[in-house]
């Protein structure tokens, strides 16, 4: 099982290469080698590091790279 930094690197790679600009945690779980809770913690750490941002519709929440988000209103950037 990957450690925190490895998980973060895998998530970043996924968000860069994925066809979809924004991903659910569930999408990451299919591709990243770690427990759901670990992926969640790593993804949220990436947000704190300002490398990833949340994309929320109000009812569900996704993750995206700031430069790949579609809307002009970006969280915290």
């Amino acid at each position: 099982m990957a450690d925190r930094e490895e998980v973060k690197a895998q998530i970043l790679e996924l968000l860069t290469k994925s066809k979809k600009p924004a991903l659910y945690l569930k999408d990451m779980q299919k591709k990243v080698d770690a427990k759901p809770r670990e992926i969640k913690n790593a993804a949220n750490e990436l947000v704190r590091d300002q490398k990833v941002m949340f994309w929320s519709s109000g009812s569900s929440t996704m993750y995206a790279l700031p430069e790949r988000a579609k809307d002009e209103d970006k969280i915290g950037v």
């Binding site: 949220n44 947000v47 704190r48 941002m53 949340f54 994309w55 929320s56 519709s57 109000g58 929440t61 988000a69 809307d71 209103d73 970006k74 969280i75 915290g76």
Partner: peptide, 13 residues
Amino acid sequence: KHGGIVGVFGYGG
């Protein structure tokens, strides 16, 4: 209209 992605930094909700 739909909401989009507003929020405060570091919070997903």
